[in-house]
Simulated assay, not measured.
Amino acid sequence: MLQADLDYDSMQACFDTLKRSRGVDVVRIALPEPATHQGLIDTYEAALKVNPKIRLILLTHLSHRTGLVIPVKEIVAMARARGVDAIVDAAHSWGQLDFRPADLDADFIGFNLHKWWGAPLGVGVIYIRQARLDLIDPDSANSPPFAASSYSRVHIGTVDFAARLRHLRDLWAEELRDVKGLEILTPADPRLHGGITSFRLARRTSVQDNMAVAKRLLDEHRIFTVHRDGPASGACVRGTPALFNSAADDDALVKAIRSILP
């Protein structure tokens, strides 16, 4: 396996772990200073010529050490022609550079989303070309049968918060959308909503009306909602699921709203 001096420490540590656990040889090179586009390609090619047993290289698209951007697509093509796979670390480039994953033409790419996309810590994306999936072992924390996708190659653990909130929202909002006497204000089109959705009883557009609805839901059903004013069409009541809510909670909300319809 081949790594460079500008690769990320944790990625280098992964290679070193494989050396200890599987006995693989790890070759480390220094990238040229000053660097040129062709000079970088030549450096990796020279390392492969000197070490013909190498079958995997690590490529850091944009180095966190110096900011150097390497010509990943060209190096991947050169390595592939020699029967060598490449793992691309795009942690810093995804969000700093204008590119699409397909532009790299790599089989294995890791993206970090908390660096330059502003996502929560620990959020990232792994890309594995479908035709190469069998080369990556299923995550040891997962149980068979293993899906024919990258999901089986990583252990997801905590669910996708956004997807969970949207699911909970749909359970009550779409169930009530066509109920007579009720207005669901947020569209059903998934492109046009998140987890929050507001509603009002037909023709009950005053702040007082909607405060009263929210109060009834709390007092009679122990369901907490909030009234909101501001829309030109009138005030409304906002229902917002939390991560600890369940499908049963949505069922209770549906029944409660039905019970207060005029």
Rank of each mutant, 00 (worst) to 15 (best):
L31E: 07
L31P: 03
L31T: 03
P32V: 06
P32Q: 05
P32A: 03
E33W: 07
E33P: 06
E33L: 10
E33N: 13
E33K: 08
P34I: 14
P34W: 13
P34M: 09
A35S: 13
A35H: 07
A35G: 05
A35Y: 07
T36R: 02
H37D: 11
H37W: 13
H37P: 04
H37F: 13
Q38I: 11
Q38P: 07
G39W: 00
G39K: 00
G39S: 05
L40N: 05
L40A: 05
L40F: 05
L40G: 05
I41A: 07
I41V: 14
D42R: 07
D42W: 04
D42L: 07
D42Y: 04
T43Y: 00
Y44C: 04
Y44N: 02
Y44M: 03
Y44L: 06
E45R: 06
E45I: 06
A46W: 00
A46V: 06
A46N: 11
A46E: 15
A47I: 02
A47F: 01
A47W: 01
L48R: 01
L48G: 00
L48Y: 02
K49C: 08
K49I: 11
V50T: 13
V50W: 07
V50L: 11
N51M: 01
N51W: 01
N51D: 00
N51A: 00
N51F: 01
P52N: 01
K53I: 05
K53W: 09
K53E: 13
K53G: 13
I54T: 12
I54P: 06
I54M: 07
I54D: 07
I54K: 02
I54Q: 03
R55H: 13
R55E: 15
L56K: 13
L56S: 12
L56N: 14
I57C: 15
I57Y: 06
I57G: 14
I57E: 09
L58V: 10
L58G: 15
L58I: 11
L59Y: 05
L59P: 02
L59C: 06
T60Y: 01
T60H: 03
T60E: 03
T60Q: 04
T60V: 12
T60F: 01
H61A: 10
H61L: 11
H61V: 10
H61W: 09
L62F: 12
L62K: 12
L62Q: 14
L62N: 12
L62S: 13
L62D: 13
